[in-house]
């Protein structure tokens, strides 16, 4: 509402001075310059702070935060509106984690100015209390809408969603975690309650889109892209299909290298995009959304998004 009040105030000033700003003209005519948002994303980085060792392995030399940070900085210098997001499993996979329990991982993400992340199952690996403690080094929020953290060390250290304002755009971001049973020992999960991801994403996304007026709603997910052996197990493909008001799912957990974002129709017949970029920070994903202004927002029940050709490096 703050924005609308500002808008009205600015309009009043403009009207008072008999100046008509172009944005107001645009509002009246329904025409507007293209508004762009760049989303950069990672998932399942698994403590890969340094590139893979040069040991003849398949991934030797790939990844590492120093090269990633430079890439991110370059893109930030070129683009006005950038969101940098991560889909969990920040922890576990290199001796850095065994020794420092996530401190350098959090510091590196803070230095790269991540905007948000979520918890993956491996982020419980040194205990929930450790994760909560390591967040002292993070400058970004942990967004979870389907973990009940009451009476846990995370109780006051997470948020169900965050709204980012980028120029004229309002972007709502929420997050979902995977069921801990069978993946996370009870002792490490503490009293964390796993709640239905579909119900909770729908609840939060509706609030973000309808009540808070977000133009784009993103769900960071550690549910996994899909499960061949169990087609009914909740995954990003099912989440996309069963939700309304989510535009983009940035996935993780299954370490899936998607060659292109996958488009799924949601319950309302609108397009939902899913993307996931493997693991270990080998790839930094980039999605550039273009927005157009429209009227009668509440009447627009379904819409499509055109996915362009993959840009070469």
């Amino acid at each position: 509402m703050q924005n609308r009040r500002n808008f009205l105030q600015q309009t009043a000033i403009a009207a008072g001075t008999m100046l008509v700003p172009s944005s107001m003209l645009a509002a009246l005519t329904g025409q507007d310059a293209v508004t762009k948002l760049t989303i950069l994303h990672t998932n399942d980085v698994h403590s890969r702070l340094e590139p893979f060792p040069m040991d003849g392995g398949r991934n030797q030399g790939l990844g590492g935060v120093a090269a990633r940070a430079e890439l991110i900085n370059k893109i930030r210098a070129e683009e006005e509106h950038v969101l940098l997001l991560d889909a969990g499993d920040i922890f576990q996979g290199t001796p850095f984690f065994n020794i420092y329990k996530g401190e350098p991982e959090m510091k590196a993400m803070a230095a790269m100015r991540y905007d948000a992340s979520i918890m993956g199952n491996h982020d419980f690996d040194a205990g929930l209390e450790n994760f909560a403690t390591q967040l002292q080094h993070a400058s970004f929020p942990i967004l979870m809408c389907n973990y009940g953290f009451i009476d846990t060390p995370m109780e006051h250290k997470y948020a169900p969603y965050k709204i980012f304002k980028k120029g004229k755009l309002k972007i709502g971001v929420t997050g979902v975690g995977i069921e801990m049973k069978g993946l996370v020992p009870d002792a490490l999960a503490a009293n964390t309650q796993y709640l239905d991801p579909i119900v909770n994403v729908n609840r939060v996304a509706e609030k973000l889109k309808k009540d808070r007026g977000c133009d784009l709603v993103i769900c960071l997910s550690h549910l996994g892209y899909k499960y061949k052996e169990d087609e009914n197990r909740v995954c990003d493909l099912i989440l996309a299909r069963e939700t309304e008001n989510i535009d983009l799912i940035i996935g993780g957990h299954t370490h899936t290298f998607l060659d292109a974002p996958v488009v799924v129709k949601n319950k309302a017949g609108s397009d939902v995009l899913i993307n996931q970029v493997g693991w270990a920070g080998i790839i930094l994903g980039r999605l550039d959304f273009e927005f157009s202004r429209f009227r009668n927002k509440n009447l627009s029940n379904s819409h499509t998004v055109t996915v362009g050709k993959k840009a070469s490096e």
């Binding site: 590492g64 090269a67 974002p261 999605l287 927005f291 157009s292 055109t306 490096e313």
Partner: peptide, 30 residues
């Protein structure tokens, strides 16, 4: 009654390789 809606998406994968420039801040942090 107005707002913004995503219409198109361009995408790109950046492979993080040893041939890319590295960030000194992160190197010294690490």
């Amino acid at each position: 009654k107005t707002g913004y809606q995503p219409t198109t998406v361009q995408y790109k994968d950046y492979k993080v390789t040893p041939h890319q420039p590295i960030n000194n801040e992160l190197t010294s942090l690490l």
